[in-house]
């Protein structure tokens, strides 16, 4: 049984295959309209999410399957004190595959140990978010036609931003990648990512505070939101939330073919005026999320187009 808990659960080859399949789904969606007929996806969302949950649901519905689940811990048996291990053992009898989001780090891994169906980590606290990573990789590849040899700028909350950690780990496996890490001091990339991923693989990187200073060097600018729900202290959040705001004025200093990605939702870190810039790729990225989740669920369920 294959689960996807960490983006590194998938090899580079498996990711290539998934992205190829996702590209084909994007080009020929009708071909896949019935591929999951009779299959059920359980969405176990212990914390609020619009995009990821709807993206998973749309992905399964697009393939002719059906969806069941809950969208907050309050409306689940977790509010009665049920453990993740027990919940997944029960859900394994109700569905064919499951996507789990949980505020506690490692909850999907715990679930995977007891599950009889494939478990997909749909975000566990500030830790990992592998399907967002696949979405990011698909978007980067579609924009730049490669995943290697790129200078990637990651900007904003690099400490708690799980999408950032997952993306760094995944891109670190491609040749010629260079990272520019742009964040306030308090929200820098955790040491273990620096030590065990970036430095361990001798990947060139820079840590800077000022976005404008480096924006001209970037092939990809990955913006993130400073997430209120990751702070124990409201004061810290208020102080840091407006650290970076991407505007058209800043975009003028960027390469003409740079792509701006954002896992969404945004608050104010990308000014609305940037939406009309052809380099803004974040809405296309959200759409890609559906295709790549379709590809992932097809692969984990072992279904193919007849």
């Amino acid at each position: 049984m294959k689960h996807v808990i960490d983006p590194l659960d998938l090899s580079v080859e498996e990711i290539d295959n998934l992205l190829n399949l996702a590209d084909d789904i994007a080009a020929n969606p009708k071909k896949y309209a019935k591929v999951c007929e009779g299959k059920k996806l359980a969405t176990l969302f212990y914390e609020p999410s619009t995009r990821t949950r709807l993206s998973f649901e749309a992905a399964m519905l697009n393939m002719g399957g059906s969806v069941l689940g809950f969208s907050s811990a309050d409306s689940s048996s977790a509010s009665k004190g049920e453990s993740v291990a027990d919940t997944i053992r029960v859900v394994s009898g109700y569905a064919d595959i499951c996507a789990m989001r949980h505020p506690k780090e490692g909850a999907p891994m715990r679930a995977a140990r007891y599950s009889r169906i494939p478990v997909i980590n749909a975000g566990d606290g500030g830790h990992q978010h592998p399907t967002q990573t696949l979405t990011d990789l698909m978007t980067i590849r579609r924009k730049k036609h490669t995943l290697g040899g790129l200078t990637i700028g990651l900007c904003g909350d690099l400490k708690f931003g799980r999408t950032v950690h997952s993306l760094i780990k995944s891109l670190a496996r491609y040749d010629g990648v260079r990272f520019i890490l742009i964040s306030p001091e308090e929200l820098r990339v955790p040491d273990y990512i620096l030590e065990e991923v970036i430095k361990a693989k001798n990947i060139p990187y820079q840590e800077v505070v000022d976005l404008e200073e480096v924006i001209g060097e970037l092939d990809i600018l990955y913006m993130t939101r400073v997430q209120k729900e990751r702070f124990f202290n409201e004061e810290d959040y208020v102080r840091l939330k407006d650290s970076y705001i991407l505007t058209e004025a800043k975009m003028k200093k960027a390469k003409p073919d740079m792509a701006v990605l954002h896992p969404l939702p945004r608050v104010n870190e990308i000014a609305l005026e940037v939406d009309d810039d052809p380099r803004a790729a974040y809405f296309e990225q959200a759409q890609n999320g559906v295709y790549v989740r379709m590809a992932l669920m097809m692969t984990l369920l072992g279904v193919e187009v007849c």
């Binding site: 453990s83 291990a85 780090e105 490692g106 715990r110 065990e196």
Partner: peptide, 28 residues
Amino acid sequence: RCITSIEEEIDHIFRLCDSEKRRYRCIY
């Protein structure tokens, strides 16, 4: 923020990540 902080009967499992520096990481 770890699932081990709320899940009952969960084993606390750490994996060696750097033997030179004697560093372990929680698997969760």
